[in-house]
Amino acid sequence: MRRSPRLRAHASHLVALLVVTLLITGCSAQNSSLAEQADAGDNKNYVAGDGSVAEYAPDSRSEPVDIAGKLFDGTTVDSSQWAGGVVVLNVWYAACAPCRVEAPMLQTLSDSFAPEGVKFYGINVRDEKPTAEAFERNFGITYPSFIDRDGKLLLGLTSYVPPQAVPTTLVLDRQGRVSARILGVADESTLKTLITDALAEGSSATAPAPATTAGADDAS
């Protein structure tokens, strides 16, 4: 039996209405998902560490870190300039939520260890200068950061910094070797201990040898 034109038109209208409803529902679900991602921050663009801590014994450490790069203030810094001192390197970028969490703590430790000659450097893997400087002003960061949008600095640290593992914090001993690593947000007391260990190890290693009595024996 043939359907009347009116019935065919009504059926077509129902199909069209169903399609529009499905499209709206799908778009709403997608928009909701995007909103949730936006609320969560830029979390899709980094691989957060699990907070694991590794401290390496002196006889198991690799060769000294060999990196050079430009800071946001235009200064060029080479790791050879760090010889004899303990250095802390922190990989970060402004939109990284865990980086915002640990920033005040890093500044506190930077201030605390400055009298002992410990140097702190950030390694910024994404931002342009205005964005990085706004972050530093917001969190009161006074130690400098390298520009590393091309990843050249991280390339020299691949043995210790997994790709896109932001934040990551490294402690370098007085010989420029990695003595400790924290993947993810650094705990203040843990990082303080790792820095203190590196300082104590260095001071004992560089302690002057006891004076000999050969001259006194010869004189007698």
Rank of each mutant, 00 (worst) to 15 (best):
L34C: 03
A134T: 08
L170Q: 05
A68V: 14
F146K: 11
R174L: 11
G74T: 12
P64W: 05
A16C: 10
S220N: 06
A200Q: 09
Y93H: 06
P58M: 03
S33P: 00
T158G: 09
K129F: 02
A11F: 12
D148L: 00
P163F: 10
A29N: 03
G215F: 02
A68N: 02
V161E: 02
G51N: 10
S189M: 06
K129A: 13
I182F: 13
P208N: 08
Y121M: 07
S112Y: 05
V20C: 12
A165Q: 07
S203E: 11
S220C: 02
T142S: 12
S80L: 03
A219C: 09
I195E: 07
A38W: 07
D127V: 02
S12I: 11
G41R: 07
R177P: 05
R61A: 07
I195S: 06
V20W: 09
K152R: 14
D66K: 14
Y143C: 04
S203F: 08
V53A: 12
L7V: 13
A216M: 03
S12P: 00
I123F: 09
Q164V: 06
A97E: 11
D187S: 12
G84C: 09
D66L: 13
N90G: 02
N43E: 04
A40G: 11
G49F: 12
S4L: 04
T76K: 09
V91K: 13
G202K: 07
L17N: 09
T108Y: 08
A186W: 06
V118Q: 06
G156R: 12
Q81F: 04
A95P: 00
L154K: 07
E63Q: 14
E36Q: 13
L199P: 01
A165R: 08
G26F: 03
R126T: 10
V101K: 08
D150V: 01
S32W: 05
L194C: 11
D39I: 04
L154A: 11
L155Q: 15
T108D: 07
K70M: 13
D66Y: 01
A11K: 12
E102F: 09
T108R: 15
L14V: 07
Y56G: 04
T190H: 03
F146G: 07
E201R: 12
S80P: 00
S112K: 15
T193M: 12
T212V: 04
W92N: 11
L154C: 10
A165W: 06
N31S: 15
S204M: 15
G122D: 04
K70S: 14
A214F: 04
D111S: 14
E116K: 14
G41D: 09
P162C: 10
